[in-house]
């Protein structure tokens, strides 16, 4: 059963230099209780795909296609329909906990207003539930934190508060947009533990948007790799790591430094730059940077095709398992 079904989603932004397509014809589904990892470079459209799902695109952004949440299309939905889903059945955790909490409101109130809005809780009930949720995300001295302002908490604690806020109404899905990027490594691990706990104990589906493959390996069940606004490969997490089928996925994996690498060797990179979204290369967007590219790649765009039981890829080449 899928809880979130994205079909042929295209997101474009009007700018002074013309329209920019951030997301092109993306189709994805999030199953109940699963963790779907979304990987890609900056500008690959991974965040905007789910911003569109939350109805949070910038004013100059426009989405088309279908985003079905439990069967209900969210594209073009009214603000009140969106508000009955957002924060209630689908929560979102943002990248930068330092700036994502309202600086002039106490933590307890910021958490509480979610259940006051969606569950009709009284302020006293809201405070109690906020306290319970802060404890659930393992915030020490939770009682005292309720009356603190965000600037009085560390980055790690603020991100826990963000998670607690997204969980207040026990949503069926959580979108975590780079939840660990702004945090230092030890805190990253704690945040991932909390997300894992949420997934396992509350059976909440999680979309984990990141460029950190380590984070994906630790938490995701399935992975979608995005490049230049398109999905280039989807597979279960084991297959992605063990047997990447798209040259870009393979390149990303090769870029990850490993502990058992020889010291002093140069780090592997994918040569070239991510493409300008306003002037995408012809054919496959990745072909100028692809070691496998041949003539067809420059003229024709490979469609995302199902290969095997749990996998789809958009590439003409078949890459042998390493």
């Amino acid at each position: 059963m899928s809880i979130l079904d994205i079909r042929n989603l295209t997101v474009s932004f009007k700018t002074q230099d013309g329209a920019v397509s951030a997301v092109n014809d993306v189709s994805l589904s999030l199953q109940k209780g699963e963790c779907l990892g979304i990987v890609g470079e900056s500008g690959s459209g991974k965040s905007q795909t789910f911003m569109a799902a939350m109805g949070l695109l910038a004013a100059n952004g426009k989405a088309s296609g279908e985003i079905l949440f439990d069967g209900q299309n969210l594209i073009g939905a009214s603000e009140s329909t969106l508000n009955s889903v957002r924060g209630n059945r689908m929560g979102m955790i943002f990248q930068d906990p330092m700036t994502s909490l309202t600086p002039h409101m106490k933590i307890g109130r910021q958490l509480g207003e979610v259940v006051i809005k969606h569950r009709g809780a009284t302020p006293a009930q809201a405070r109690e539930q906020a306290l319970a949720m802060l404890k659930r995300v393992q915030i020490p001295e939770a009682e005292r934190r309720l009356d603190m302002y965000p600037h009085e908490l560390s980055g790690g604690l603020r991100q826990r508060v963000m998670i607690a806020m997204a969980l207040m109404c026990s949503p069926e899905a959580i979108i975590a947009d780079e939840p660990t990027t702004a945090l230092d490594v030890t805190v990253q691990a704690q945040i991932l533990d909390i997300l894992r706990d949420v997934k396992e104990r509350l059976n909440t589906a999680i979309v984990l948007i990141t460029h950190d493959l380590g984070v994906i390996a630790g938490l995701a069940d399935r992975v979608a790799v995005m490049y230049a606004g398109r999905i280039v490969e989807v597979a279960d997490v084991r297959s992605i790591f063990a047997n990447p089928q798209h040259p870009y996925t393979k390149g990303l994996l090769a870029c990850t430094p490993r502990l058992d690498d020889a010291c002093g060797g140069a780090m592997t990179t994918i040569s070239g730059q991510p493409p300008n979204l306003q002037r995408l290369p012809s054919g496959c967007s990745f072909h100028p940077r692809c070691g496998y590219a041949f003539e067809k790649c420059t003229t024709e765009r490979p469609a995302l095709e199902v290969v095997g039981a749990t996998r789809a890829k958009a590439c003409f080449k078949t890459i042998e398992a390493a």
Binding site: N83, S84, G87, M92, S100, K117, H118
Partner: peptide
């Protein structure tokens, strides 16, 4: 960003 968060809360 916190205004975006507030909107994401519905």
């Amino acid at each position: 960003n916190y205004v975006r968060t507030a909107r994401a809360k519905g």
